[in-house]
């Protein structure tokens, strides 16, 4: 098996008395999208900045494609592309000028195709100061991918983007993954992580509290599956089952919460048939990553 694209072992960083990162460990496999999740202030950006070589860790071992970000910055730039959360670009440079400039620094030919793909093709002569937030983020991503890096670090890439731009960016991330690019995605958007990431790590108060695929993480929690049913005669109003933890009536819908949706749905169908009722609508919603995240956050808060 190939070495991981990114390895983080025992990463710690303090700002005065505040421990921003405390013994953080995770690794990112080559060619996967890895989501780093956490609320504001959890340490996501500090982790990324240590990997980018922008910040020196107090302790820990970091490797990006086998390169030490704290010592081999020049080599690091060749394999890594970065989209910063708080980065900006010169206000009076046009998009065309910045693509040319960054291509020159990366010693590659300007990739105009990426500007087309990101919807910037007709804005090449527009100055940075005149771009919208979404356009600036897309430009930042275009610049990060100009030299076709093996690893891409994205810090809240879709923050402030409209739906269209968000979808386009997700498509580009999938394309890049298909081409073998490893993506470390820092976000607090759970839905984005759930749909985009192959694996995620949840960072709370500077510590990793869970790592796995979104499905694995949601499965390990106490999250309940929600079963929502509507029938013509509303025969489920008083329905009970040993594996239903909680039930309620919402308008014309009967709502049940269970950890075992299979037997419960079977029992519901049997009940409807027995009562000569007729099914109108049935929905089964598995616990989301967001619910698992909130559960972990509550646990972490109660531990303090």
């Amino acid at each position: 098996m190939a070495d991981p694209a990114i390895e983080v072992h025992g990463l710690s960083k303090r700002y005065g008395d505040h421990a921003a990162l405390d013994q953080v460990d995770f690794s990112v496999r080559r060619g996967e999208i890895f989501g780093l999740l956490g609320p504001n202030g959890a340490g996501k950006t500090t982790t990324l900045e240590c990997l980018e070589g922008l910040r020196l860790p107090d302790a820990g071992r970091l490797r990006v494609m086998g390169i030490d970000p704290t010592r081999e910055r020049h080599k690091l730039r060749q394999v890594m592309g970065v989209q910063l959360q708080t980065g900006s670009l010169p206000a009076y440079f046009t998009i065309r000028e910045m693509i040319r400039l960054f291509s020159a620094y990366h010693e590659v030919n300007p990739d105009w195709a990426v500007t087309e793909r990101l919807g910037l093709g007709n804005l090449l002569n527009t100055q940075y100061q005149a771009l919208s937030t979404g356009q600036k983020r897309r430009l930042s991503l275009a610049l990060a991918t100009l030299h076709q890096p093996a690893v891409l670090l994205l810090d809240e890439p879709t923050a402030g983007l409209d739906v269209g731009a968000r979808i386009a960016l997700h498509e580009l991330m999938r394309e890049l993954r298909a081409q073998g690019t490893t993506i470390l995605l820092s976000t607090h958007d759970m839905a984005e992580a759930e749909t985009m990431a192959d694996r995620v790590a949840i960072l709370l108060q500077g510590r990793i509290v869970a790592v796995g695929t979104p499905r694995e993480l949601t499965a390990t929690g106490a999250g309940l599956t929600k079963v929502t049913v509507r029938t013509i005669n509303n025969s489920l109003r008083a329905f009970t089952h040993p594996q239903i933890r909680q039930s309620q009536q919402q308008d014309e819908y009967a709502v049940f919460y269970t950890t075992e949706p299979g037997p419960v749905v079977t029992a519901i169908m049997h009940h409807i048939q027995t009562e000569a009722d007729e099914l109108v609508d049935l929905r089964v919603e598995r616990p989301s990553l967001e619910e698992r995240f909130l559960e972990l956050t509550r646990t972490a808060a109660s531990d303090v």
């Binding site: 922008l54 020049h74 730039r77 910063l84 990366h106």
Partner: peptide
């Protein structure tokens, strides 16, 4: 202004 706006950081992560 370049430092305050994060322009220098953007340049740095691109190897300048």
């Amino acid at each position: 202004e370049a430092r305050e706006a994060g322009i220098l950081r953007s340049f740095r992560v691109n190897g300048l």
